[in-house]
Write a protein that binds this DNA or RNA. Structure first.
Length: 525
RNA sequence: GGGGCCAUCGUCUAGUGGUUAGGACAUCAGGUUUUCAUCCUGGAAACAGGGGUUCAAUUCCCCUUGGCCCUACCA
């Protein structure tokens, strides 16, 4: 059975690259009806961040990447091969470190950090590879015993065999290394905690991991791990080294050059689906003949194979994420509106002048009202967190206002305040805004048009339909082009260069405020 | 310095020993729309370079170049 694992260290919020690594491991396990394990690698006590483990579990859960074995939110664990937190397994690592010592595959090293530093400095200066010089490899028995008796701190180093080693990687094929180029790795630190290399091998073995999926940066450590498997006489797992996620300048994706915390993308309003789709395609593609652009998690589970993962890194470019997010939200929003409309009025007529845009015509204006109310609530869900308090007071007005900027909110919910503020406060604007040369609106025309609007709206019942009808009739009556009347009206009502259409704005503002704004504009001209 | 990995439009990518090298995002132009957006149509845009192998190479091999990763008592 296939068994994969995600093994993060709890050093802070989950990195977006880490999420992708987890996703690939999860998908591969599910694709093969295997299991997916979460293991916490907290062997560096200095870097551990309080609450990070919980945070990681929550994020994985948020994305639906349920693990079959590992720690849980209730601080218990599930699975037969626990504990799944390395700091609780230290006895195991000590036992196997001792075994390595006994078999001559490892040795104690008493060198101080200062000496190691000096040695490295010297090597670098002489253009040599910085590597441990094995001074402590063959310490005479008496000296060794004396140092132990004196309680001199030591580490345990792996004795790397000076021989060639090759291994197969599912993504990259065969790679060769020579032992002579590999440093004698520290396996146990002087605080008696293991390093990644030892803990990782021991755990993967006892947790029966069949496929190790991890980032490319681990390739050069793989021979060390393989030598360890050799020393223990264990069967190594299959490896798949994943391509890196890159900064704009092609270096490894880092905090310094942008946001890498998964959490912050969730906070910014990116949906689970869009994040998942975005990251899964940075480094993988199902191959020829695949035309779907957006996958559900289930569909990904079916489609995913490690063989189709790419070799080269991918630049983490947010433009596409924005597109995924918007596309997904839009589709879902319109699906939902369709549902709601049919629920409210089974006889509703729906026309679709454009792709994924619908015009709903209800039998009864009363039904239309309740539909609009629900529609507004739907939009509100997308932007609630970004709404400024001063817009929250008038709920009817808010609902209608939101509907007029629906698409824009789906695209960037965080800008909702900018989109709707003009409904609540008329911006200061120059009188030039009311004119438009290309459309044939000079200030005389603007004045005439606005006065005509006043006439048209004076006795107009205040529904969107009636407002539209009244103004369009007026346009015919005074014989101007649409834009000649509608441009000055729209700009008078919004005070903005760009805004929703004049009819909708008038409807949202209400009769009194509409007339008021038109009159204000007239005094400017 | 040593070791390793990688290389198709700006970005994510499809693809093949013979293709007009395909798609998406971004971008540009035109159209629809009272403005912006949306929507529709169209355009520009890539096989890093040099050698082989071959009738034929973007595809296979080698070299060069470039980028990246590792080179910690971090993972």
């Amino acid at each position: 059975m296939v068994k994969t694992r995600f093994a993060p260290s709890p050093t802070g919020s989950l990195h977006i690259g880490g999420l992708r690594t987890a996703l690939y491991a999860y998908l591969y396990a599910r694709h093969n009806n295997g299991s997916f394990i979460l293991r916490i690698e907290d062997t560096d006590q200095n870097r551990e961040v309080e609450g990070a483990t919980k945070h990681i579990i929550q994020i994985l859960q948020h994305f639906g990447l349920q693990h079959d074995e590992g720690p849980t939110l209730t601080e218990s664990e599930k699975g037969p091969n626990g504990p799944y937190v390395q700091s609780k397994r230290t006895d195991l690592y000590r036992k196997y470190a001792q075994q390595l010592l006994d078999n001559g595959h490892a040795y104690r090293c008493f060198c101080t950090k200062e000496r190691l530093e000096e040695m490295r400095e010297h090597q670098t200066k002489n253009k040599l590879a910085p590597m441990y010089d094995r001074r402590c490899l063959d310490l005479p028995q008496s000296e060794l015993e004396q140092k132990l008796k004196d309680n001199i701190p030591f580490v345990i180093r792996q004795k790397i065999p000076y021989q060639e080693i090759k291994f197969h990687d599912i993504i990259r094929g065969t790679t060769r290394f020579h032992g002579k180029t590999i440093d004698d790795q520290i396996l146990m630190k002087s605080d008696n905690f293991p390093t990644y290399h030892l803990a990782n091998v021991v755990d993967d073995h006892f947790m029966e991991i069949t496929h190790v999926t991890r980032a490319e940066e681990w390739i050069s450590s793989t021979p060390k791990h393989l030598f360890l498997y050799q020393a223990f006489g264990w069967e190594p797992p299959e490896y798949a080294h994943l391509p890196l996620l890159l900064n704009e300048d092609r270096s490894k994706l880092s905090k310094r050059q942008g946001d890498v915390a998964v959490e912050s993308y969730i906070e910014k309003g990116y949906s689970v689906e869009s994040i998942l789709n975005f990251i899964v395609f940075m480094g993988w593609h199902p191959g020829a003949g695949e035309e779907r652009e957006i996958f559900t998690l289930k569909e990904l589970e079916e489609a995913f194979t490690l063989e189709k993962v790419h070799k080269s890194g991918a630049i983490f470019n947010l433009e596409k994420l924005d597109w995924f997010n918007w596309k997904w939200k839009k589709e879902n929003h319109h699906k939902k509106l369709l549902e709601i409309a049919k629920q409210i009025d089974p006889n509703v007529t729906i026309s679709s002048p454009r792709k994924e845009q619908h015009i709903f015509t209800f039998q009864d204006p009363q039904l239309e009202n309740s539909f609009n109310q629900m529609r507004g609530n739907e939009i509100l869900k997308h932007c609630e967190g970004f709404l400024s308090p001063k817009h929250k007071d008038n709920s009817d007005k808010l609902t209608n206002a939101l509907i007029t900027v629906e698409e824009k909110i789906l695209r960037s919910p965080n800008e909702v305040t900018d989109y709707i503020d003009f409904y609540f406060t008329l911006p200061q604007y120059p009188k030039e805004l009311l004119t438009h040369e290309k459309m044939g609106v000079d200030s005389n025309q603007a004045l005439d048009s606005l006065k005509a609007c006043l006439e048209a709206l004076e006795n107009c019942p205040w529904t969107l339909e009636e407002i539209t009808k009244a103004l369009m009739n007026k346009i015919q009556e005074i014989n101007v082009k649409n834009g000649q009347l509608l441009w000055p009206l729209r700009s008078a009502l919004s005070g903005l260069q760009f805004s929703p259409g004049a009819f909708e704005i008038a409807f949202v503002l209400g009769k009194e405020e509409t007339i008021n704004r038109i009159q204000q504009a007239i005094t400017k001209l």
